[in-house]
Amino acid sequence: MFKAFADWLVGTVFGMDLGTRWGEAVHFFVWDVTKILVLLSCMIFVISYIRSYFSPDKTKKILEKISGVKAHIAASLFGIVTPFCSCSSVPLFIGFVEAGIPLGVTFSFLITSPIVNEFAMGMLFLAFGWKIALTYIIAGVVIGVVGGIIIEKLGLEKYVEEYVYRMKTGEYQDQQLSFRERLVFARDNVLDIVKTVWPYVVVGIGIGAYIHGWVPQSFLEANAGPDNPFAVLVGVAAGIPLYSNAMGTLPIAEALIAKGVGLGTALSFVMAVTALSLPQMVILRKVIKPRLITAFVIITGVAIVFVGYYMNFMSTWLL
């Protein structure tokens, strides 16, 4: 359907020859943009609807009852399904700590939640299929669990701002949403996400189309292929200062992987962009001291690098 639309628009309306380099690139661009935006909207809608059944309060109440490694795993899994944006990370952090949820468990949640978001899940599924989407989700959980356990073991509680422990949290009655309200929530979420990410998606696919038509495969394969461990490090280091909404990195990653860049190399870059963004750290600085932020960045960064290696190692099976 989307291919037919691209055939018609580029071939008939623009009058371009699809056999030429330009024709092929424009065709690829139109096809990919329409396909991704439409299918992505549908997937985000479904995921948002499911997410409307979860809330930080329910998550908190469940996490209060469990302890040990199980708590880390549960926190990380709830990080996937609990709707949550970076602007809520401070009240969420305070709420969890106030409830007596261990610092490391809170971090398991905070690490996994941004990595495994509805956009990344939808995009990876559309671009690479379920095997890679699932691997990415599992990777996000493993990074959250391991990172959270290490933070717990290091005993970094003293690097939480003192005022956090003095705060008084209130209690309120959680309301049940109606079917209609959930649909409105899901629709608004789709509109919000698509409105924010569409320029990145278009630019990302544009760059992807360029790479598709012009950059030779051998160049990328030789420099950033799965066998180059150094490329993973560079990818993660480069991803940290980028803003978390730069989700257009995924379409670029897609094109890069198709051209021979290692799967783990490209996806660890995407994870670094989402999990370790500067704005997120600025927000977290309100509740935790620089030492703990540094520990969080190093631990999560190292975990992402390892996951990148693992995915590169497994890439022949996954792709």
Binding site: S88, I94, E98, M167, K168, Q173
Partner: peptide, 23 residues
């Protein structure tokens, strides 16, 4: 915000009673 127990913004309170959270 914390005093209300809200962990997900935005939220709406009517006469001190939370009626909407996170949407």
């Amino acid at each position: 915000i914390i005093a209300y127990g809200v962990m997900k913004t935005p939220a709406l309170a009517v006469d001190g009673e939370i009626v909407v959270v996170g949407r």
